[in-house]
Write a protein that binds this DNA or RNA. Structure first.
Length: 423
DNA sequence: TCTGGGGTCCTAGGACCC
DNA sequence: TCTGGGGTCCTAGGACCC
């Protein structure tokens, strides 16, 4: 039996989330900014129509924003994460298999459905809208890559009303010819440029390239993409999320940071945050990597460097990881530079219970360490992130992000709960 | 004068995704 | 003045082994 995949993807997800709890935003252009209120990372259709481009710095659009009364928000990932969970819950109720692919999209398997997939997906779309308030578009195809492509068509052409089915279409070639090669899932900036320079500028032309040529220039990954464009499924729906192999916390600072003590605090904070994510997936890390960077967008002396510190044995104990991050930082810190970004990466992850012990190493953590971490994580989950933290991460936090236009955490914090009043 | 071949592991770098 | 953050996978090349 031919397989059928669907990709459900929320429209302008972050911006749509802001609208859910503020109906006055309906019909108004809305944009959401990256951390530090730097770039535009989400735009509603109204904002796109004004010519606002994604991932461009917001200051370029100041005039447009004022003239057209664009609603501007700092990214509120707490809110988006919670609304994402709600959408995924609805989607899961409609398909035997779902893969949550990102915060705003999921693949569904619809193979063997007793009815045509198009009307079924329109029901899914209506239900998501009704139960969560969020608009979603759905693409249907014989492979994940083609479902993705169908989703793009559904979004681009409003006349399809949010659902497009690419299976069994006699005009498939023409449809694939209407899609820019770089809009194919798996073809990014570099490959797009490479292919276009050789006249391969549409999805159909990519599909029809010889295997050997694709493998040579786009590796086996590209070959999989091409096979999928031909309708041969190579990429399976993965229900269970594999544990992460690396965990990174990094930030650009709200302002330049020049001193080691301030950077040490930032590194400690990022190590703590990474450690929390690490314990959430019950892993321990064997390596701690820290990096610092100056602002490459600006003139002046640049410096960036990375240091990796190996642990005597894998650990999930925050003080241990903070100490290693600081050790790495001490190695790469050079005075006199205006630092803009820092991050802490944990790698060499193993299941915490199976962590290889080193009987000759100095004690990595006290006997009460495990209980302490559980208490720490429990309190922060119950009362909000940062309720309990290590003093090493500092209090003044001069490096913290700028978020001037943050919306309330409507769904996850009692104090931010929306209130309905009778008038 | 002659100087293998194959395997594994690790890392850095580069591509991609959202 | 103001330019995100967090991941994955693949390949090439070097170290090392037999």
């Amino acid at each position: 039996m031919n397989q059928v995949f669907a990709l459900a993807d929320c429209n302008s997800f972050y911006a749509s989330c802001e609208r859910v709890f503020d109906p006055s935003l309906a019909g108004r252009p809305v944009i959401v900014l990256s951390n530090n209120d730097g770039c535009v990372i989400a735009r509603t259709a109204e904002a796109k129509a004004l010519g606002i481009v994604g991932f461009e710095p917001v200051f370029k659009y100041q005039a447009i924003i004022e003239r057209h009364d664009v609603a501007v928000f700092s990214a509120n990932f707490t809110l988006y994460g919670d609304l994402s969970d709600r959408v995924m819950t609805v989607l899961r109720s409609f398909a035997p298999q779902t893969e949550v692919y990102s915060i705003d999209e999921a693949f569904l398997t619809l193979t063997g459905l007793p009815e045509p997939p198009d009307p079924y997906c329109r029901r899914i779309r209506g239900t998501v809208r009704q139960w969560t308030g969020l608009p979603v578009s759905i693409g249907i195809g014989p492979t994940k890559t083609l479902a993705k492509l169908a989703n793009r068509i559904a979004k681009k052409h409003p006349e399809h009303e949010g659902v497009f089915d690419l299976t069994g279409r006699p005009d498939l070639d023409a449809l694939l010819d209407s899609v820019d090669v770089q809009d194919v899932w798996g073809v990014g900036h570099r490959y797009g440029k490479f292919l276009r320079a050789r006249g391969v500028d549409t999805a159909r032309r990519l599909r029809d390239l010889p295997d050997a040529y694709v493998k040579k220039h786009l590796t086996v990954v590209g070959l999989r993409t091409v096979e999928e464009l031909r309708g041969n499924p190579c990429i399976a729906v993965q229900e269970a999320r594999k544990p992460k192999q690396a965990i990174l916390t990094s930030r650009s600072f709200g302002r330049d940071i020049g001193t080691l003590p301030e950077l040490r605090e930032a590194a400690a904070e990022f190590a703590s945050m990474s450690a929390e994510k690490l314990r959430a997936q019950r892993s321990a890390a064997a390596f701690v990597t820290v990096f610092v960077e100056t602002n490459s967008f600006r003139e002046g002396p640049q410096y960036s460097n990375t240091a990796t510190v190996g642990l005597a044995e894998p650990s999930d104990y925050t003080p241990r990881l903070i100490a290693s991050a600081r050790e790495g930082l001490a190695r790469i810190f050079r005075p006199g530079y205006p630092y803009k970004r820092c991050g802490v990466l944990l790698s060499g992850l193993v299941p915490a219970v199976a962590a290889q012990r080193d009987c000759f190493a100095a004690e990595q953590r006290p006997a009460y360490g495990g209980a302490l971490m559980r208490a720490l994580d429990g309190l922060n989950a119950r009362w909000g992130r940062g309720t309990l933290k290590y003093a090493a991460a500092g209090v003044a936090r001069p490096w913290r992000m700028r978020q001037l236009r943050l919306s309330p955490r409507y769904t996850t914090t009692w104090d931010d709960l929306p209130v309905a009043r009778a008038v």
